[in-house]
Structure formats: structure tokens, C-alpha cells
Design a protein around this nucleic acid. Structure first.
Lengths: 128, 128
DNA sequence: CCGCTATATAGACACATGTCAAATTAGATG
DNA sequence: CATCTAATTTGACATGTGTCTATATAGCGG
């Protein structure tokens, strides 16, 4: 990783530019790459991938931390850490209700990444 | 990162299971997550994202290392290292022709990741 | 065979990251 | 307020990672 520090704050990444052509359509600029890499880094961990999946699949689109923690052989602080990483990347959002904290997926972020990785002709193929 | 070592060899990841429902359809198993995370880790770096994009967008679908190296302010060994990471993850393939080495994207891998991140209803929405 | 260019490998080093134990905060309930 | 549970923060430590320089390998042209 480069030594640039991580300005990445709790605010979500700019979903305005979520349009974005696939990687394969025109070369990413250095700036775009710097902005996108942290999103992939956030999901580039087996625990966080499962967390994201567990949250996305959970009834009502949200899951309590207690449900998530019990799915792993890891301590609560570790799960808390991974949730924080996902949240800081703008992939999930949290909501405290009483003692419990619920997390849900921010739909735009995943869609953006999915679109970015789509091969060039995917659109045409599907629309045909 | 977990201390599991990286068995990940030059052989591409099993593209047979490339179908794979989106993350959001049913929870990833621990095994699936362990297998997928290295792919995301490979693209979770700004330099590698740009390399992938440069290769994918290049005429003829392949790019010479010399073209790639000149696009960055990094030494040749560093670019070589990043290309190796992408190749070991099964995302790109290389081919030596004379003095030059050409890299091209393995289409299946990106498609797989894109599908994995697709939100649940994307299919229905597009097919409607 | 010798040198030249294009890539790759090896080794070193600074920095990032995943994990845990210990301490802390937040809310509910007696 | 006291105490219990849920979740987070802090700090420490081992391991992973991106970059460089130096060196090696591969192929071409004399």
C-alpha cells in the first residue's frame, strides 16, 4: 500500500459519479484508481466478504451485530473492526436501536463496483 | 490478513463455479469467501486497477509491459510485481513474443466478480 | 560470443493490517 | 445509582504488502 494516509472518512464515497463505464471501456485515471481501490480493499478480506453477504441476505436487509459475531470464530472487537472498515468505505450503514446496532448494505456502492467490473459488451448482450 | 499462506498458484481460479449467485442472494460460506477474497485483494490497489484497465482497453486486448511501465512513475520491477500479483490471481495472462511480453485480461474472472457484486434484483430488472 | 534492451527475481525496509486482551461507552433494568 | 449486556475503542504484536536497488534471465543484433 502506498504511504498516502487514508483520508477516507465516514461519509460515503461520492455516489454521484457512480455511473462510470466499465474498467474495460477506457483506462482509469490515477485519481479514479486511488478512489476506487479502497472500496475493493474493504471487500478484499474473507471475513468482510462474509459480513457483507450476511448483512445483504438477512431478513429485512439488516442484521444485528450479535447475529454477525456469532457466525465467526472471532472476538467481538475483531468483528467490530471489520464492520468499521466496511462502513468507512461507504459499503454499509449502521443504526442503533436500543442496545443493539443494526447494519445494512448501501446498495449504490455494490452496484457501482459491479458495473465497473462488467466486461465491455455485457450491456449490448443483455439488451439484445 | 490471516496467516494462512497463499496456495494461490499460477493456475486460474476455478472458473467452473463462475456462475455464482450474487453476494446478496445467499450468505457466502467461509470457504467461498476464502477463495474470493484473494481476487478482490488483487484488484484492491490503485496501480493494479489501472494496469487491469490499461490492459483491458488496449488495442487487440493486450498490452506490452513497456507500454504499461511508461504509464506510471514507478520502477519496472514494481510494475512487474503488480503484474505477477494479477496473474497469480488468475485475472490476466501473459505471452512472450520475442523480447516483449504481452498481457491480456482473462475475461471470465472479471465477469465472475461483477456478477458476485450485482444486487439481487438486477437480473429481473434488466430482463423485464 | 558480446553487448544491448526488455522483464523478472531477490532481498531489504518502511508501513499497513488482522487479531486479541483490556478498558470504555451506551442503553436497559432493577 | 448499581449492574448487566451489547458494542466499540485502545494498544500491542505478528504478519502482509508496496516500493526500491541490485542482480539475473531472455532474446535480439552485431
Amino acid at each position: 500500500m502506498s504511504n498516502r494516509g487514508l483520508p477516507l472518512v465516514d461519509a460515503a464515497p461520492t455516489e454521484s459519479e457512480a455511473c462510470c463505464a466499465p474498467l474495460a471501456c477506457e483506462p482509469l485515471t490515477a485519481g479514479e484508481a486511488e478512489e476506487l481501490a479502497p472500496l475493493f480493499k474493504a471487500i478484499a478480506d474473507p471475513v468482510r466478504l462474509r459480513l457483507l453477504s450476511l448483512i445483504a441476505c438477512h431478513d429485512g436487509g439488516e442484521a444485528c451485530v450479535c447475529d454477525l459475531t456469532s457466525a465467526f470464530d472471532l472476538t467481538a472487537p475483531t468483528i467490530s473492526h471489520h464492520l468499521k472498515v466496511l462502513k468507512q468505505a461507504g459499503l454499509i450503514d449502521s443504526d442503533r436501536r436500543g442496545t443493539w446496532v443494526y447494519y445494512r448494505v448501501r446498495p449504490g456502492a455494490l452496484t457501482r463496483l459491479s458495473a465497473l467490473l462488467r466486461p465491455r459488451q455485457a450491456f449490448a448482450a443483455v439488451e439484445a
